[in-house]
Design a protein around this nucleic acid. Structure first.
Lengths: 222, 222
DNA sequence: GCAAATTAATGATTTATTCAAG
DNA sequence: CTTGAATAAATCATTAATTTGC
């Protein structure tokens, strides 16, 4: 399905270039604001969404760490060999191991040795979670939300459509009453059936409660 | 900050009881719909939000697995000992190790041995990510969104306010134009400053580009 | 040259680990 | 010490490079 819709993001060279430059310049775990801005900017060079940027930084950071680890392992190995066989591996050992941690990519940065200075900066205070909504009439629609409690209410970001042009973002603290969910009481089996379509022994879990007594949870076989 | 707003959810005994019962009854990784319904139901017994339910199931599943692993390790250890010292550990070995995987909690379920049957159900297809938005006038507001591409548009769930009463949920595919974000061009330093407030060497990253030439990324020290 | 077959990169999920509040 | 919340590591899965045989 190459035309008109791939299953995963395929970054353009420009996008990769800019992302790498930003990473090198110190942005390791961008917050939502940064992601949003980066996304709108990169959308100029091709189809891109916020999650792509988010994932890119996640993966890039992780894989830089990985490379670093492997490099250090290798060095230790070499150290071992050098120690045990001092006349071997004399010319092909890395020149300045400690100072070239992050100079992997080929773009000639004006600050080749400054990279990684901000590595262990204060950790981002982001919290993430997800869920999947099955609207009764429309199965298998899932949503990912990004919210924060703010002054007692949930705020939420709207990012409609993959930003092909420079994408505007909207916020709201009001509720456009478009659709309501089916509410309780709901049995555990009706909840469960979305989870396991081929459950060997379907149970029915009914929960009855009122304000004064502890809730009664009853499991029954239909 | 105990009165009028704790920093983390404190589940009531009823809530825990119901959650455990649901877990036992087969709900291991509820989707958004289930989470929403569970949340609205449990909000009857106290303050609770969707993310609490989400996290609870995540942690509970992980820690059950952990317990299981440790138990199995222990058993193997015991097997080893039994094999090497056959007369020790004779009476205190577990009665029926294979059949009581998940009967840890103390609530007397009518189906004590049926638990865990649905353990390796089809994996949820949820995708999660987060970002944090800093609205210019109001620092440190972060949002968590839950979205999915659906027919070319992002759908999004709105969950306003911790559901103290049975909470209605709203969906929208339209854009209420309430607030716009600051857009590009943005320097990397302005992006970065939210990330590291005490960066030792602030860089300025300016990106210039047009449609025909490759983008120019320039880092400069202010 | 050019596809089918393999391999390497890397985008996207899931699982495990760690942090920190109470 | 328990456990809610957050982060990092491991894993899966798809796409691009590349090799290979014709």
């Amino acid at each position: 399905m190459s035309p008109a819709g791939s299953s995963r993001w395929c970054p353009t060279p420009e996008q990769v270039m800019i992302l790498e430059e930003m990473y090198r310049s110190g942005i390791k775990t961008p917050n939502a604001s940064q992601i949003q801005q980066i996304t709108s900017h990169l959308s100029f060079y091709g189809k891109i969404e916020g999650k792509n940027v988010f994932y890119w930084f996640q993966n890039h950071k992780a894989r830089e760490r990985q490379k670093l680890r492997r490099k250090l392992q290798l060095q230790q190995q070499q150290l071992y060999h050098t120690y045990n066989y001092p006349f071997l591996h004399y010319f092909d050992s890395p020149a300045s191991p400690a100072s070239q941690h992050l100079s992997y990519y080929n773009s000639p940065s004006p600050f080749p040795q400054q990279v990684g200075v901000l590595e262990d900066a204060a950790k981002q205070q982001v919290m993430k979670y997800t869920w999947k909504l099955d609207v009764p009439e429309r199965a298998d629609i899932d949503y990912k939300s990004m919210m924060k409690m703010y002054g007692g209410d949930w705020l939420m970001m709207v990012d409609l459509g993959p930003s092909l042009s420079s994408s505007p973002c909207y916020f709201t603290t009001t509720r456009p009453p478009l659709k309501t969910l089916q509410l309780f009481p709901v049995t555990a089996s009706s909840l469960k059936e979305e989870c396991n379509s081929s459950s060997p022994k379907p149970l029915s879990c009914s929960i009855t409660a009122n304000n004064s007594t502890p809730p009664q949870v009853a499991l029954t076989l239909p």
